[in-house]
Amino acid sequence: MAKRKRKARKRKSGVRLLIWVLVIIALFLGVYLAHHYYRIWNQQRIEEQMRRQDRQAKQTFIKQVAPEAQAMQNSYHVCASVTIAQAILESQWGTSQLASQYHNLFGIKGTDPANSKILTTKEYINGRWIVTKGRFRVYDSWSDSIKDHTKLMLNGTDTNKDNYQAVVQAKNYREAAQALQKCGYATDPDYAKKLISVIQTYKLYNYDK
Rank of each mutant, 00 (worst) to 15 (best):
R6F: 04
R6I: 03
K7V: 00
K7N: 00
R9C: 05
R9T: 00
K10P: 03
R11A: 04
K12E: 03
S13N: 10
S13W: 08
R16K: 13
L17Q: 07
L18G: 09
L18V: 00
I19E: 07
I19S: 05
I19H: 06
W20L: 10
L22I: 05
V23W: 10
V23R: 08
V23K: 12
I24Y: 08
I24P: 07
I25D: 07
A26C: 10
A26G: 08
L27R: 06
L27N: 09
F28H: 06
F28I: 08
L29W: 02
G30P: 03
G30R: 05
V31A: 12
Y32L: 12
L33W: 10
L33H: 09
Y37V: 08
Y37H: 13
Y37E: 11
Y38D: 11
Y38S: 10
R39P: 03
R39G: 07
W41P: 02
N42C: 13
N42G: 09
N42H: 13
Q44N: 14
R45K: 07
R45I: 04
I46Y: 15
I46W: 14
I46T: 09
I46N: 13
E47C: 00
E47P: 01
Q49G: 10
R51I: 11
R51W: 14
R52Y: 02
Q53F: 10
Q53K: 11
D54P: 01
D54Q: 03
R55S: 12
A57D: 13
Q59P: 11
Q59V: 07
Q59N: 13
T60D: 15
F61T: 01
F61N: 04
I62G: 01
I62T: 03
I62L: 15
K63L: 12
K63M: 14
K63N: 13
Q64H: 15
V65S: 11
A66D: 10
A66M: 12
P67K: 05
P67L: 08
E68V: 01
E68I: 00
E68F: 02
A69S: 07
Q73G: 04
N74G: 07
N74H: 10
N74Y: 07
N74S: 11
S75C: 09
S75F: 08
S75A: 09
Y76I: 00
V78S: 03
V78T: 01
C79G: 06
C79D: 11
A80D: 04
A80K: 03
S81M: 08
S81N: 06
S81C: 09
V82K: 00
T83F: 08
A85I: 08
Q86L: 14
A87G: 04
